[in-house]
Structure formats: structure tokens, C-alpha cells
Design a binder for these strands. Structure first.
Lengths: 207, 207
DNA sequence: GAACCCCTCACCCATTTGGGGGAGGTGCGG
DNA sequence: CCGCACCTCCCCCAAATGGGTGAGGGGTTC
């Protein structure tokens, strides 16, 4: 089985390499420090499972995941993250991830997860399952995606712009901007710009 | 020389361990996954240099750094981070760090940094020096710290509260809350609550 | 073609925010 | 003791925000 490690932190790449170096039937065929490098590698070499960091420079892990599972659905993607918020897990699964690991995971768990993913199963870290299920069953799931315009507007809000400035910046009327802001509030289930920014930053919807 | 690794991600701890396992004159005497564990270890065993993740569960790396350099000034602290914002670096140095590494660092850089720190020098990742200097020389340095009250207020703002609610929550008058908000704006050099939340989240001043 | 989402804009209205000013109190370090 | 930072509160005022309702057009999907 061919494993590709994608993470922009060299210590993590090397750490995983060492941890998995003596696992039977598993070959680490490469590593990449960016989404671009990952796609380049996949295009030239067969890969069965990708171990993908959820947060990277430039294109984030989630964006990369989206393209990856759209273009190469046969490849199993195991997301790795330092975040244990259910929102991340949910979004990753929606975008086609086969598994979700925390960076606090030990060797055995990583190996288990890779095996599970290579056999088409889904592996989720134990500690994440419960809140995830509660999230699914329970509350009116907070959205995990904004429309492009909404995202733009929220980004500008996070940068300190007020509606008038945003309208000018985007070439819209102020009324339209207000409509988008309301849309953001609804989707994120918040009631102020500040809270919206907090939530969106946590969910990686904006930078 | 005795090195202690502190990071809540097991892959990072193990990665560093493997990377440094064959370095002459360097002994990795232990690792810890939390600030509490770190202090417990230091209390019972001599440590020369601590490799400390800037972000951890519970007490953050920066909090831990503050206590560490206050109580054990003879210990060299090398901060490790995924963040390359100058704000982090500045704050870490203010709090007594001897060096600052990115997690994208390779083996050689880590070894260099540890040696530098053990000899009392300060090691900063090349790419971080320039913006840091620009920051020092240039613009009216954005503050890196809020007063406790300001921090509380901003935290509530990030959670969606408005001034009246904050006042009730903290048992203050609305006027007082407004004063704190103005203080936050000044310190962070921003002009809206939303921007303040964005900046503070990035600087880890609030959760 | 009907349902649905996204984009765009408008009007109304109460409340909140942002930005000045000032002013007392505590407590700590030089 | 004096400054300084922090905490607390008050006044004023213009501007921005949040919360409705409504409405037309474009595109996709079923």
C-alpha cells in the first residue's frame, strides 16, 4: 500500500515517516509540504492513502481535500488535525475524508486508521465520535459553508471594514452588503459581526 | 545537555525525538504533553533546554513560557510554532523565550537552534527576522497583551454578546464596558469589534 | 417548469456601536 | 511620593448595526 504524507511541518512529516518506517505492507512513497506538491505527486505516481494535514499555508487542507476526493475518489484520505472541534470533523467528512486523526495520536492509532481507510472503512478518533454524534442528532447544525460573496464580505469584516467600505470595495450597494451579512448570521447562527468572525475563523471559513 | 520536549501532539514529540536521537552531546531526558506535566518534570529532574510548543490545550505555550522563565530563568526555552506572524514572535521574546522555530524547520535548523540557546544566544528563524525588525522599527507596534478585564470583555464579544449583556455578565455598568472596548481598540489598533476579535484570535489573546 | 440557491437592491426602524470628553478610585514600582 | 496602569463610571453625539419585508433576475437541478 502506498502512503503519501502531506503536511507543511517538517517535524510532522519526518515524525510520521519514522513512526511508520517498520510497518509491514506499508510504503511511504513520498511526502509533500503543500497541496500543490501533493497534486503533482499524485499525478505522477500511484497513491492509495493520503495522510493530509487539515491546515496548511495557501490552500488549506480542507480545500485540498475537496479537490482530491472529487478528482481521485479512489484515494483514501486520512485527515490529521490538532483541532478537536466537531465542526472540523463534520466538514472533513462532508468533503469526502475517510478518516480523522488528532495529532496527539500514537503510532498504533495511526496504523489502525491507515488500515481501516485502505479497506474502505471510516476511521474517526474515539474522542471525536461522541460530540460528532451529538452534533448530528442534536442541534440545528451550524452551517459549514458560506457562499463566495458571503465569504468575501465576512473576510472584509474581519479586516475591520464597515458596510459602506465593503460596498465600495466590492462594487455593490450597501443594501446588498447588509443582505449578505444577514445571510452570514443565519448560516453561522450568530447575532453579531464579531461572533461571526470568531466562528468563521475557528471553522477556517476565512483567514 | 538535557532537552525536554513539550508539545501536545504525539507525532511532533516522537518526530523530534527521532530526528535528534543521534545528536552528540544532546540527551532528550523526557517529553511532556502539557504545561502541568512540564513543570512536574522540571521540578524533579535537571533540564537545560525546553522545546516548547506555542499552542497547547489548557494553559497555552505562552502562559507556560511566562511562568517558566520567571521561575527557572536558567533554562533556555525554544518556542516551536506553526505561526509565522511577527506578533507571536515578539510576544514570545517579551516573555523570555530564547528562540523561535517554525514547525517546518528541518533537523539541522533545530539542532542549530538548540545549540545556540544552550550557549545563551537567541535563535530566530531567518524568515521571521525581517518582519520582526520591520515591526520594531516601523509601525506603532500592535500591543500583544490585554488587561484581564479587557480580555474578558473581548472574549464575550467574540461569543456574540453586546455591551449591555457584558455589563450584566460581569456586574459592571455599560459605560465601563464601553471604556474597556475602547481600550481594546487602542491596544490592538483596530476600529471594530469584529476586527478586534479577528486580531485577538490570531494572537491567541482569546479563545 | 417548478423549486431552489445565489446575486442584487430597496425601505423602515430600534438599538448598538464608535469616538470624544472627563473623573474618581486602587495599587504597584521607581 | 509620584507616576502609571488598571478599574470604575458619567455625559454627549453621529454613525453603524441588526432585523424585518419585499422583489427581480440568473443559474442548476430534479
Amino acid at each position: 500500500m502506498n502512503l503519501l504524507i502531506v503536511d507543511d511541518h517538517k517535524v510532522v512529516r519526518d515524525g510520521v515517516r519514522f513512526m511508520l518506517s517498520d510497518v509491514e505492507g506499508l510504503e511511504i512513497v513520498g511526502d509533500a509540504s503543500s497541496a500543490e506538491a501533493m497534486f503533482a505527486f499524485i499525478a505522477s505516481s500511484p497513491v492509495d492513502v493520503v495522510l493530509l494535514d487539515i491546515r496548511m499555508d495557501g490552500m488549506t487542507g480542507l480545500d485540498a481535500l475537496e479537490h482530491l476526493s472529487a478528482e481521485f475518489p479512489q484515494i483514501g484520505v486520512l485527515m490529521m488535525s490538532m483541532h478537536d472541534q466537531p465542526g472540523y470533523v463534520r466538514r472533513a467528512l462532508e468533503l469526502g475524508a475517510s478518516g480523522y486523526l488528532l495529532k496527539s495520536a500514537g503510532r498504533d492509532e495511526i496504523v489502525d486508521a491507515i488500515h481501516a481507510v485502505s479497506e474502505g472503512e471510516t476511521y474517526i478518533h474515539r474522542a471525536l465520535m461522541e460530540p460528532l454524534l451529538a452534533d448530528v442528532v442534536g442541534t440545528p447544525q451550524r452551517a459549514t459553508k458560506l457562499s463566495p460573496r458571503e465569504q468575501q464580505v465576512l473576510q472584509l469584516i474581519a479586516n475591520g471594514s464597515e458596510n459602506k467600505q465593503i460596498a465600495r470595495e466590492l462594487g455593490l450597494s450597501e443594501a446588498t452588503v447588509k443582505t449578505y451579512v444577514r445571510g452570514v448570521f443565519e448560516r453561522l447562527d450568530v447575532s453579531s459581526r464579531a461572533e461571526a468572525v470568531a466562528v468563521a475563523l475557528r471553522l477556517d471559513l476565512i483567514e
